[in-house]
Each structure stands twice: as structure tokens, then as C-alpha cells.
Write a protein that binds this DNA or RNA. Structure first.
Length: 864
RNA sequence: GCGGGCGUGGCGGAACGGUAGACGCAACGGACUUAAAAUCCGUUGGGAGAAAUCCCGUGGGGGUUCGAGUCCCUCCGCCCGCACCA
């Protein structure tokens, strides 16, 4: 039959219109049905969608459509994480206004997402830069403040002395500002903090209950929170002449058992003591400037070569009379952790060891494997790090000699507490969340600074504090600060002239509660309690692993803060989390080093050449798609050429969703051919087996029916657990079997019935992945109603059941044969069969059978 | 530097601790065609053998187990995060 070629350009927009006009995906609360909330991390409106979006939103869409078909009341919303630096950069670089730029981008990207045929409830769309969204953020912030969850404290930022601007960590490149190239300095600013540390313990222990989160993400969060049990204690300090100072040096350690191995103390370059000593010490001032140039990122600080500066102070060892430890300012001690000061024990810490070697400090081992001769145990290049199960013992440690590490810790703690110089302390690595940003394109922080009344919240009736539109980017710094009038307000208390806060919120705040807002996006309050009670938590959250820590931890905290202030009735916003992999692509560059778009690279005689210049190209690595390396493929071009269904199919095929997927031309071509093949198969099946055919059970169709029902069973399970690539493999199998059945020129009525069933089931199975094609096929199969109005089919248990199984036969763990036996055959009968097989006897080569291990219906292993 | 992950044919990958390589791509052979494209059928981890069959194989090395791609240790390579990118 001459089937017309499937034309996605006609079909896809038509069905998109149908879904939209019939409001197929708009959802509302319905207590009579189970709810299912699918959410993908919302996009930043950067301009155009990229392949990462296509992958992320396709996965969410498949889940949404599948769950819908299974009878769930599905919520699947979309919005925009619309505040952020790129809008300001566009303003500075291209003279466009951040607001116009952002909303233009949203319009473009909304259209692009719609062309993907996503089953989204667009009536719930939100943009975080809209006052109707951020006003609630301001209100909640004020409530958090009243609830004691907000704090104002001084913290350090990267300062560009030329541009007179605060720099983000990514704007610091090799210690210099990205625009000015000037060495970065540090500045202390009073900033707002959300007290996430009030929930350290809770955020940690609650991880155990997030059973449907990837273990790796929970582990990363555990490590990030970093609970440790240690001691805070202080050393007496003396000056070079040996005079005792009034001041003591407080340190934090988890290895107080190694106190006898201490050979120095180190404080952070930002430590209060270092700041005070700087005045009379030019060398220290220079050292502090050098450390400041590293910026504030922990990565750059820890990567830097370990260096210290002798402060000329000495710490008296608490247990070794007359022993003095030199005190350094060191570039690797972080002010934000513990006390910003440590004692160094080089024998048992690699970093301390490197430091000690560099400055010629003693290395005294104090922990050694049991039975080691203390006199001979020495440390060379590697510190001795005790591991969980090691049998170790304290040495060179006076009264601790012979103690195990845990016992030594107890003893030191006991003694120090008795001496009054320290106490046991649980410490967390987690720091409070600094939310102040010295930028324009963010949510204004709703407070007023008054010279006489201090810092006051903006009265709730004055919310929202709206960002002014009339700002300029012609000079560096925060435009809100330069604005002629915006910041000048009267004090809400005394009514005298006062100043608005010109800092805006970290954009992580915007994304820390949007999931809740989607439940009732137009509510007058941040969240409508009834709607949130019905929809929350998110049943399936999907996004990149790059958000494994910050965004997810902040959201978990925010939910708790919202609970405390009465906005939400739950702690954990995301019941199940899935982290998808990136989209990667081959890179091409010219001999000049310039990157080349894949679209401009053409294969020629086994080489790659530039489509326009003909120059031979260098093929680089397969890397994450990025604008800078130009290895990007524009989704819009792909959808235009192949259709959304093909793009979606490719994103789901082959590669498991959690792994990185490589975009290849051959892969898309393959996906495109398969859409055409499905179209032909269904058209042929529709012609051969009319809607009147009924399913029969005769033997000549049982094979096809089994394939169909077993695949349906497998696909149902695989889609429930997000194993899209596996479900697609099963769909290929059904397509292959259906294709073979269609070869039959003289089909019996019962075969026709089976073909009909196969075709219909096939369409319903691929519908979540290729929704437009499925609708069109469904029409060809003779249905008036749409696939989106059709329930998910159910496999027939009789057709799934196996009556015969193939059991592998091993001899000493090596496969030697296989036997077909009835399913459920008991051990002894199977054993009797296998030991007498020729292949088994040959492999045994005369040895007696020692034992037989039988796993029923799977394997028999003869040990001989 | 610290924390986390990944590594299986030419390629993407499949495999409750139980027959490694399902399914797809590519390649090769064939059918159809004047021809090509498309489509359809077949072959395809490596090695030995006429065949039956045997040996080797899941990044390298070691271990646990009747049995390891899967669990443990270690090394190598790649990727992600590191608190002001989103």
C-alpha cells in the first residue's frame, strides 16, 4: 500500500493546537483521584532553549503523560528562573534593559518549548522577576525575620578595585577581575543571612528518609553539611621573649588524640588576630593581600600552594611543659570553618605534613599500627591516616601511650575540660546562607535603613518593593545605588528620611520555593494551603546533578522555614529526585584554534572539513555542549527538520537518562527513520486488521500476543522507574514482531486480531515519548477520541506467564550447557537432569560431583 | 586540594551476585530497482577449528564467592560540585 510519508510539519502543530484548545493538560485539585506532581528544574531564560533543556523536559513530559494515562491527576507546570547576572551582563555589553531582554527571551523560549509538544499546564506559568511572584518572597523574608531565621552579619566578598564592583566567584579568573584584569581584593560587607545552620542536624538526619533520592546526592549533602564531633580548646600564647599574653588562641579539632604530635598552630589570614597584627607588620600585610587575591572560593584557596607567615607568637603545649608551637597565618585555613584556627599535626594530616616539610617543623608520629616499635616508626612522604578498621595505638604521647584513638579522645577531652581550657563540640561545615547581592536584577530586599531607628522591615502593606525600570548601566556598581530617587524613602517608624536597602536577593531564593508557588500560582498569599496540601510534595523532580547540593539543600531548608512561618505543612519538597546527565557533542576547531560549529563541519574522504572554507578541521574531544566551544546543536533547527517526536525519541533512546548522552547525526537519523517506520507499520496494520477484529486466542497468534503483552509489562515497569532507554528497546521488539506478522500474505482472522492488538498497544506504548505521531496513528487506527484521552493498557497475566524456562548449566562456574525445563521444577529433579548431561560429564573429566548449587529457573552449578 | 560519580564490541548501551553483549547505530552480504535513495532479509566481541566445540574477554592489578560487569581494596582515565554562574 502506498502510504503517505509522515509529515511532522503538518501533524505536530495540529495536535499541539488540539491539546491547547481542549486544555488537555490544565489541572486542578480533585480529591477523587490520586495526584502526581512532575517537575523539571525550571530554566533560566538565557535566550534560546538548548539540548539540555530538550532532554530534561522530554523526560518530565514522558512521566507526565504516562502517569496521566495511568489515571493520575497530573500537575506538570513550567516557569522561568528569570533573575540573574546574564541579564545585567547583556545590559552592560549590549545596552539592552535586563527586563526587556529577559521577557523577550521568555517569549522565544516559551514558543520553542511549545513546539516540543510538552504536556504542560501553561496556565500556571510564572516568572520569578515578576513582582506578582517576588512580592511573596519579600513577605516571607519578613516573616522569616520575625521567626528568628534571618541574621545580619559581616562577610567577605571579592572586590574589583578598578570596576568598583563585587565579583562573583566565576568572575574571578586567576585572582583577577574578568573585565578589568585587576588583582582581586577582599571587602567586608554587612549582609543578610538565612540561618540554615539552625537546621544542620535536621537537614542531615532527614536525608535518611529521602529514600527515593539517589544515594550519591544524599552522600554529597551529608558531606556538605559535614557534621563532626571534636573539641574546641585554647592554647596559652606567649610572645618571642616568653611572656604570657592575656589572649588565648582557640582552635577546633577532631583529632585531639594527636595533641602530642602538634608541631605548629595556624590561623586563617582573615582571623581577627591576623588582622590586628597586620598593622605593625608589613610582611603580614603583604601575605594577607596575597591570600586575598585568591578570592573567596574554597576551591582556589585549597588548590593554592600551602604557605604560611610566622606571626612571632607561640602557643604553649597544654601537656608538654616548655614546648612552644610557632603560630602561623596560613593560606589553607578557612575562616568560615570551626574557629578559623587549627593546631597542625604533620604525622597524621597530609596538608599539615606538606606545611611542616616546607618550614622545617618536627614530624612526631603519635598513632601507629598495634605492635609497632615507637622508636622506629617514622613518617616520610605520606602522613599516616588511620582508617576505620585499623588496629592502632597511641605512641610518643606520655599518658596516652597504649590508648586506642577513641579512648585517647575521651581522655584528652576529660583532661582539657577539667583544666578549663576546652570542651567537646559538634561542628558543622555548613555555613549560613548569605543572600545579599550587590546587583540590580534580583528581588529587592524589603528593609529600610534609618539613622535613628536602625534597620526596619518595609511594612507589609507597602509590599512589593518593586525594582525601578529607569536604571542605567553606564557605570560600574549596582544601578539601584546610583538611582536618583529609588533608595530615598521615609522611615516607616519615625518618618524621617531614610535609605532603602539596595542589595537584592540571591537568585537561589527564587528557586527555593517555586515548586510550592506552582500549586496556586495566582493565589494572593505565597501559597494556597489547600492547593499545597493536595499537590505537595513534588512526586518526581528532575534536573542536573550540578544542583545536587546548593539548590536542593536551600529548597529543603526553605520548605522548613516556610513551615515554621505557617506557609507550608511539610519539610521535604521533593519526594523523588532524578538527576539526568548532560548532552555532549564532538568538538571541531580550525588549525588557527578557532572553534567551529558542527553545522559547519562536513565529512569528506574520511576527514572533516569546513563547509565554507574547505579547510581541514581538527576533531577534538566529546564535551558538554557549550557556546564557547561552539559544539552546540540548535534544538529549533532539529525540530524543524526532523520534528519534535524524533528529537524526543533520540533523547530517550540508548543512553540511560542519568548518563551523559552524545548527540550524533547518525543517532537522530536513526530516530527519524524509526518514526517513519512506525507510521508505515501502523498504517499497514490498520489496513490489514480493521477495527472490527476481535482478539482471539488460537495458537497461530500466541507468539505475537506474548511479545506484545510481555513488552507492555516491561515498558510499564520501565517507565515507572524512568528507564526510558530500556522501554524503547522493548518497543523496537514489538515493532519488529509486528513487522514480521505483517509479512503474512494470508492472515487468519485470529492473526488479524493479534495484529490489531499489537498495533494499538504499540501506539499507546510509544505515545508518552512521541505524542504527536501517536495521535496521528490512533486516528489512522480508526479512533475518534485522542490518545491523551485513552487509558494505559493492561497486560494479560496469562500471556505473561512462562511455562518453560531455560536453565544455564555450569561446571565450576563455567557455562557448559543449557536445558529447557518446566518452570518451577524442583531442585532435586533439576539436579538429576543436569549431572547426567554429556557436556557436564565431559567437563568434569572423571572427577566426582562434590555439590550442586541450584537457583531454581535460572542456573545449576556443578562443583567437581 | 577536598567531596561525589562514571569506565562493557567499531559506537550508544543490556544484564535481581547466576548463560556478558538484549535493543539500536554503523559495517558487510543479499533481495527489490535500469540505477540510486528508501525499504526488506541475513551476518557481525576477539582467537583456534571443516565442524562439534574450545580458549580469551566488562579500564589495570589484587581479593571475597560454588559463581563477579555487579561486592571489597588499590591504581589509572574521564566527568560533576566546592557556598556570588544558573
Amino acid at each position: 500500500m502506498p502510504t503517505e510519508r509522515y509529515n511532522h510539519r503538518d501533524v505536530e502543530p495540529r495536535w499541539q493546537r488540539f491539546w491547547s484548545e481542549n486544555r488537555c493538560f490544565e489541572s486542578r485539585e480533585d480529591e477523587s483521584r490520586p495526584k502526581y506532581y512532575v517537575l523539571e528544574m525550571f530554566p533560566y531564560p538565557s535566550g534560546r532553549i538548548h539540548m539540555g533543556h530538550v532532554r530534561n523536559y522530554t523526560m518530565g513530559d514522558v512521566i507526565a503523560r504516562f502517569r496521566r494515562a495511568c489515571g493520575y491527576n497530573v500537575l506538570h507546570p513550567m516557569g522561568w528562573d528569570a533573575f540573574g547576572m546574564p541579564a545585567e551582563n547583556a545590559a552592560i555589553e549590549r545596552g539592552v534593559h535586563p527586563k526587556g531582554w529577559t521577557y523577550d527571551n521568555i517569549a522565544t523560549m516559551r514558543g520553542q518549548l511549545q513546539s516540543m509538544g510538552l504536556a504542560l499546564d501553561w496556565s500556571r506559568e510564572i516568572a520569578t522577576c515578576d513582582p506578582s511572584y517576588y512580592r511573596h518572597e519579600q513577605q516571607m523574608f519578613l516573616d522569616f525575620m520575625a521567626a528568628g531565621l534571618v541574621e545580619r552579619k559581616v562577610s567577605t566578598v571579592n572586590w574589583d578595585p578598578v570596576d568598583q564592583t563585587v565579583l562573583a566567584n566565576e568572575q574571578v579568573i586567576d585572582g583577577r577581575g574578568w573585565r578589568s584584569g585587576a588583582p582581586v581584593e577582599k571587602r567586608d560587607l554587612a549582609q543578610w543571612f538565612l540561618k540554615i545552620t539552625a537546621y544542620s542536624e535536621e537537614l542531615l538526619t532527614a536525608l535518611d528518609r529521602l529514600e527515593r533520592w539517589p544515594e550519591k546526592v544524599r552522600l554529597m549533602q551529608r558531606n556538605w553539611i559535614g557534621r563532626s564531633e571534636g573539641m574546641r580548646f585554647s592554647f596559652a600564647l606567649e610572645d618571642p621573649s616568653g611572656h604570657l599574653l592575656d589572649e588565648r588562641l582557640t582552635v577546633y579539632t577532631t583529632r585531639h588524640d594527636t595533641i602530642f604530635g602538634a608541631s605548629f598552630c595556624a590561623i586563617s589570614a582573615d582571623h581577627d588576630l591576623a588582622r590586628r597584627l597586620e598593622e605593625g607588620d608589613a610582611g603580614l600585610a603583604a601575605f594577607r593581600r596575597e591570600v586575598a587575591a585568591l578570592g573567596t572560593s574554597e576551591e582556589s584557596i585549597e588548590r593554592a600552594e600551602k604557605k604560611g607567615y610566622l606571626l612571632g607568637l607561640y602557643a604553649r603545649h597544654p601537656f608538654r611543659e616548655g614546648v612552644k608551637l610557632p603560630v602561623y597565618a596560613a593560606n589553607f585555613v578557612l575562616m568560615g570553618y570551626g574557629e578559623g584556627a587549627i593546631f597542625g599535626c604533620p604525622a597524621h594530616d597530609q596538608r599539615d605534613l606538606e606545611f611542616a616539610r616546607k618550614y622545617g617543623l618536627p614530624v612526631i608520629p603519635v598513632v601507629a599500627p598495634k605492635g609497632t616499635d615507637a622508636a622506629k616508626f617514622a613518617i616520610s612522604a605520606e602522613a599516616f591516616l588511620e582508617k576505620e578498621n585499623d588496629q592502632t595505638v597511641l605512641i610518643n604521647s606520655d599518658f596516652l601511650n597504649g590508648f586506642g584513638v577513641p579512648e585517647a579522645k575521651v581522655e584528652i577531652a576529660r583532661r582539657m575540660e577539667k583544666m578549663g581550657i576546652g570542651e567537646r563540640k559538634v561542628n558543622f561545615r555548613l555555613r549560613d546562607w548569605g543572600v545579599s547581592r550587590q546587583r540590580y536584577w534580583g528581588c529587592p530586599i524589603p528593609v529600610v535603613h534609618c539613622a535613628s531607628c536602625g534597620i526596619l522591615p518595609v511594612p507589609k502593606e507597602d509590599l512589593p518593593v518593586v525594582l525601578p525600570d529607569d536604571v542605567t548601566f553606564d557605570r560600574p556598581g549596582n544601578p539601584l545605588d546610583h538611582h536618583p530617587s529609588w533608595k530615598h524613602v521615609n522611615c516607616p517608624n519615625c518618618n524621617k528620611p531614610a535609605r532603602r536597602e539596595t542589595d537584592t536577593f540571591d537568585t537561589f531564593i527564587d528557586s527555593s520555593w517555586y515548586y510550592a508557588r506552582f500549586c496556586s500560582p495566582k493565589a494572593a498569599e505565597p501559597v494556597d494551603p489547600a492547593a499545597a496540601r493536595y499537590w505537595m510534595p513534588v512526586d518526581q523532580y528532575i534536573g542536573g546533578v550540578e544542583h545536587a547540593i546548593l539548590h536542593l539543600l536551600y529548597s529543603r531548608f526553605f520548605a522548613r522555614a516556610m513551615k515554621k512561618t505557617g506557609y507550608l505543612d511539610m519539610e521535604e519538597p521533593f519526594g523523588s529526585l532524578f538527576t539526568q546527565g548532560m548532552v555532549v557533542h564532538e568538538t571541531f576547531r580550525m588549525t588557527s584554534g578557532e572553534w567551529v560549529f558542527p553545522a559547519d563541519a562536513v565529512a569528506k574522504d574520511g576527514d572533516w572539513v569546513h563547509a565554507k572554507t574547505g579547510e581541514t578541521l581538527i576533531v577534538g574531544g566529546i564535551e558538554k555542549m557549550s557556546k564557547s566551544k561552539r559544539n552546540v546543536i540548535d534544538p529549533e533547527a532539529i525540530i524543524e527538520r526532523y520534528g519534535a517526536d524524533t528529537a524526543r525519541w533520540f533523547m530517550l533512546s540508548d543512553t540511560p537518562p542519568e548518563r551523559d548522552i552524545e548527540w550524533t547525526e547518525a543517532g537522530v537519523e536513526g530516530a527519524w527513520r524509526f518514526t517513519q517506520r512506525l507510521w508505515r507499520l501502523v498504517a499497514d496494520a490498520a489496513e490489514m486488521a480493521s477495527p472490527g477484529n476481535r482478539v482471539a486466542t488460537a495458537a497461530d497468534n500466541i507468539k505475537l500476543r506474548r511479545v506484545v503483552h510481555r513488552a507492555l509489562q516491561a515498558v510499564t515497569g520501565d517507565l515507572s522507574s524512568l528507564r526510558f532507554n530500556r522501554s524503547i528497546a522493548r518497543i523496537y521488539e514489538v515493532a519488529n514482531s509486528l513487522g514480521s506478522a505483517l509479512q503474512e500474505t494470508n492472515a487468519s482472522p485470529s492473526l488479524k486480531a493479534a495484529i490489531r492488538e499489537a498495533a494499538e498497544t504499540l501506539v499507546l506504548m510509544f505515545a508518552p515519548m512521541m505524542p504527536h505521531l501517536a495521535e496521528e496513528c490512533w486516528k489512522v487506527l480508526g479512533y475518534d477520541h485522542a490518545v491523551v484521552q485513552t487509558p494505559w493498557p493492561k497486560p494479560d497475566p496469562e500471556l505473561i506467564a512462562e511455562d518453560e524456562v531455560t536453565v544455564a548449566v555450569q561446571v565450576n562456574g563455567k557455562r557448559r550447557d543449557e536445558v529447557k525445563v518446566p518452570k518451577g521444577l524442583d531442585r532435586s529433579e533439576l539436579e538429576a537432569i543436569v549431572v547426567n548431561l554429556d557436556t557436564v560429564r565431559r567437563a568434569l573429566d572423571g572427577r566426582p560431583v562434590k555439590k550442586v548449587i541450584v537457583v531454581p529457573d535460572r542456573i545449576a552449578n556443578i562443583v567437581g
